[in-house]
Write a protein that binds this DNA or RNA. Structure first.
Lengths: 167, 167
DNA sequence: TTAAATTTTCAAAAAATATTGAAAGTTTAT
DNA sequence: ATAAACTTTCAATATTTTTTGAAAATTTAA
């Protein structure tokens, strides 16, 4: 496998994996492209490489910036804007975990809390609903706590967590 | 909030959360319904409660069974089939984690390994591609290892993991 | 067997999601 | 201030994913 083929394979694989970390295909592909680039890329560069429209590129770059994964690079003397992504994989994983907690897990925890707090009218069905949503609430809360704890120890969090987990 | 409202809220929330654990809306809703049911439900029951078609119900039940989350219950003397879901949240989390590892993470690890193993032709771009995909490969491998390790200690894995992580 | 009850399959339709491209908006150099 | 360079927005379009429903298949009772 030569460079070009390997590069395309990586970008498309990473793109289709987007769903695993909760972002869409184009977003994941842009990130993948920046991740293996040796210098900041302009919107033009990205459009050309991925064969996607200007609008699409603009919108997805914006989202990547909202996530905190991609940063605008101002190159002195250059008119157009350039972009780079976080290159450290562990830092990347931290950001993604933190954002998904904030965007997706936290809101669900709130609803599980509400649902599991309804008044017990004594019926079997209500009892079961309360019991099961309470269990789910506790689990989700615990997982979220784990993620945030792990994710907040900046340096080498994964290695540290692993060590603890396996010793 | 009364039972009916709480139940509907739970089912729709859990449904839209499906994407977080990698299954579709109907699948997640069926699982949610079974999760708070006080007895096994038939296909008819599920269709009626969720207002979805027979075909949809059949297909998604099958998928849930493939995942190992739902089981067919044979009730003696009854013609139709009844279904139940795993009621223990930790066991549920274990199954989901294990399946996602097998279905989604493992195949990506293979590709990352292939891409990061291309021959170094000495160019800057190739060097960067190799370096970055290698880092990603290591990270993904580590995370997958963690998941599988955690997931294989059956009893109370989450509690155990948490304790280790925070002490 | 046969036929009624039930489930599965799958092509077509609907719904949800992503993408385009051109007009409107911004920024910067002069 | 003007206009060229560039970016953003968003309605229309295309693509992907999900859902439907009716025909085919299967199972069971008699």
């Amino acid at each position: 496998m030569k460079y070009k083929e390997a590069k395309d394979k990586f970008i498309s694989t990473w793109g289709s994996l987007g769903s695993l970390w909760g972002i869409n295909k184009a977003m994941a592909q842009i990130q993948a492209l920046l991740f293996i680039a040796t210098k900041p890329l302009s919107m033009e560069d990205i459009m050309d490489e991925l064969k996607i429209s200007r609008g699409n590129t603009s919108m997805n770059l914006r989202q990547l910036m909202d996530w905190g994964i991609v940063t605008k690079e101002i190159i002195p003397g250059e008119r157009r804007e350039y972009f780079t992504t976080e290159k450290d994989v562990q830092e990347l994983a931290r950001i993604v975990a933190k954002e998904r907690s904030r965007r997706e897990i936290k809101p669900v925890i709130k609803i599980l809390k509400d649902v599991s707090s309804i008044e017990d009218d004594g019926t079997k069905n209500t009892k079961e609903l309360i019991k099961q949503t309470k269990a789910l609430h506790e689990l989700t809360d615990t997982i979220d706590l784990m993620i945030n704890k792990a994710v907040n120890q900046k340096q080498n969090w994964l290695t540290k967590s692993l060590l603890k987990l396996f010793k």
